[in-house]
Design a protein around this nucleic acid. Structure first.
Lengths: 249, 249
DNA sequence: TTAATTCATCTATTGTTATAGACAACCATA
DNA sequence: TATGGTTGTCTATAACAATAGATGAATTAA
């Protein structure tokens, strides 16, 4: 609970004040920055809270309006426009679409591209394959209610999963595609999570604005016999998704 | 005069080019940007790769030198200086110090402050307490080999854990402090993970440079009977730590 | 209708960021 | 020692970011 008059804005940091403020407003919305009617504090009030000029706050607000998060109405105020952050569970048996049940009406994966190629070192190691073994690489984007929430690069052993991309393109679901190839169940073996600024590919595919943050997960999934079947690198839009790790539950 | 950049950088994004490049270099080091001797490509080469002026690359490198990640030697080149990223496991029974075994020689938590006060709404809800119930709040920083890796705000029911702060101050370990108060074992019930830019408190306590990213976890721990005993908000320095989520193992 | 509140727009000034070019200092090695 | 490659420093210019103040336009409430 921050109550200091000047709230955490860094100057000469290489990150423009308006962007820092935009990020804080975006995050603050989830924590009740706006009132019950979805109205934000006035520009002057925000300027005072962050210790900056009103014009700087306006630049931040304009960026969020551009992004679809806010809407300004002359004489009335500035209002929250966009949806809240989705909570994406990470558990042994959680699937993307199952995990978001109840939070979004429609969700689906889209196939951007696929390739059969030698496994890069990281993927070979994660899947327990000899270096250069043939793998199938899928580049996908997942959306919830039409909003892109994550993009993934997935590697599968080519020998076992040839044709997987067709099933994925049809169903929009990795789970369904694997089931069609005789893997009715699989578990999440390990996941590593980090974060960085979005790169230009993230910006394009996730429709982010420059400076946004992405959560990165490296995950290995295994079949019921414990054999690794999928290695994936997923980038989540950090302002649309949070990752939820549940205990043995 | 500009050659075609191989790795695109976002302009007019509110994030200065030198900071974007610093972030990319920091992350790139983990992926083999430097050669076997730890030497980075030359300033001119990096400028070409990112499509910016050499001076802009220099500003980025200077920031990383300041941060302790790089070291420049006139006439020779620029070299990697800092340690690698720690992998912090999140599992039902993982403790901070146990999880980092083998990755760092010395690790310890430090108590910044503590307070007995009414529970804020989020904490009360997470711990299953009535609003305003008395809680103990600890502000702590955890270090590995003298480098701060995370800072946490933890809430405990005051009635049950009075005096916990003394045990923590003595031992530098929440696990040991809880054990001293009759909780020999506990499990991680749920964890939510998100990310944002570091705020000024993060910068100060984690010794980060402006613009750095922090991973945020909201976690609830429960005793062996399933009763919530701790609600914590932890900020990890994203360039020093990655979170690892293991399957049922 | 009036007054107060709030967002929108304009001008002007200053500080920070990025580019450009030139040259010095230093290092490795042929 | 001579050469080429690398980092360090300097000057200069342009674009962007932030501040400041004044005024207009739309809305709400008295």
């Amino acid at each position: 609970m921050q109550t200091s008059p000047e709230e955490a804005i860094e100057r000469r940091s290489g990150v423009a004040l308006w962007r820092q403020i935009a990020d804080r407003i975006r995050l603050g919305i989830a924590e009740g920055l706006a009132d019950d009617a979805g109205r934000l504090p006035t520009e002057m009030a925000l300027a005072g809270r962050f210790g900056v000029n009103r014009h700087t706050v306006r630049t931040a607000i304009q960026a969020l309006v551009q992004e679809g998060v806010l809407r300004s109405e002359q004489g009335r105020g500035t209002f929250v426009e966009g949806p809240r952050r989705l909570s994406y569970p990470i558990r042994a048996r959680t699937r993307f679409s199952a995990g978001l049940a109840g939070q979004a009406r429609e969700r689906r994966g889209h196939l951007l591209s696929h390739a059969y190629e030698p496994a890069p070192p990281q993927a070979a190691e994660a899947l327990g394959l000899a270096p250069e073994t043939g793998i199938l690489r899928l580049e996908t984007v997942s959306q919830a209610d039409g909003r892109p929430v994550s993009r993934a690069t997935s590697y599968f052993p080519a020998a076992r999963f040839a044709g997987l991309e067709k099933h994925f393109a049809d169903t929009g679901s990795i789970t369904a595609a694997l089931a069609a190839l005789g893997v009715p169940d699989y578990v999440r073996a390990t996941t590593r999570i980090s974060a960085r600024h979005a790169d230009s590919a993230d910006l394009a595919h996730l429709k982010l604005s420059p400076g946004a943050i992405v959560l990165i997960t490296f995950a290995v999934n295994a079949d019921s016999a414990g054999i690794p079947i999928q290695y994936s690198l997923t980038r989540f839009a950090a302002d649309r998704v949070e990752l939820q790790v549940d205990g043995e539950g």
